[in-house]
C-alpha cells in the first residue's frame, strides 16, 4: 500500500533523511522549548531509521547462527545504544525546561 503511494521511490534510508530534515526544520521554526525537544526527537528517529536500514539485505534472514544469507545485525544493535543516549538526553532536556520555568515563576 505504501509502495502505491510513493511509487516505489521511497526506501527506508530516504525516509530517514526526510525525517531528519523535518526535525531540523522544526528546530529552526519552533520557539516553544518542548516543541524543540520533540523536533530533535523526530530528527533522531530519522537517524535511527536511516542507520537501521543500512543493515537491510533484501530477502535476508533473521541474524541467527544457523541461518545463512542474513541481514546485518550490527546497525540495529548500535542503534540500541544510541536510543539509550537519546532517552537520557530527552529526559535531561525536559528536566531543565521544568527547572527553568520554576525559576521564572
Amino acid at each position: 500500500m505504501i509502495e502505491s503511494i510513493t511509487g516505489g521511490y521511497l526506501n527506508a534510508e530516504l525516509a530517514g533523511v526526510i525525517l531528519l530534515l523535518i526535525g531540523l526544520y522544526g528546530l529552526i521554526i519552533n520557539r516553544d522549548l518542548i516543541k524543540q525537544v520533540i523536533s530533535i526527537n523526530v530528527l533522531s528517529t530519522g537517524v535511527f531509521l536511516f542507520f537501521t536500514s543500512l543493515g537491510h539485505v533484501s530477502g535476508g534472514n533473521v541474524p541467527l547462527i544457523m541461518n545463512t544469507d542474513m541481514v546485518d545485525p550490527l546497525p540495529a544493535t548500535l542503534m540500541l545504544t544510541t536510543l539509550v543516549i537519546d532517552v537520557a538526553e530527552t529526559a535531561l532536556a525536559l528536566a531543565l525546561i521544568l527547572r527553568m520555568r520554576e525559576d521564572e515563576e
Binding site: 531528519l20 528546530l27 530533535i40 542507520f51 543516549i85 538526553e89 532536556a93 531543565l96
Partner: peptide
C-alpha cells in the same frame, strides 16, 4: 540552567549528525 539547555540542544543536534555520518562511513 539556560546555559546548560543551550549546551544540551547543540550537543544533541551535532551528535545526531555525527551518528548519521558514522552510518555513511560504515
Amino acid at each position: 540552567k539556560r546555559a546548560s539547555y543551550r549546551y544540551l540542544m547543540l550537543f544533541f543536534l551535532s551528535s545526531f549528525l555525527l551518528i548519521f555520518s558514522i552510518g555513511i562511513i560504515y
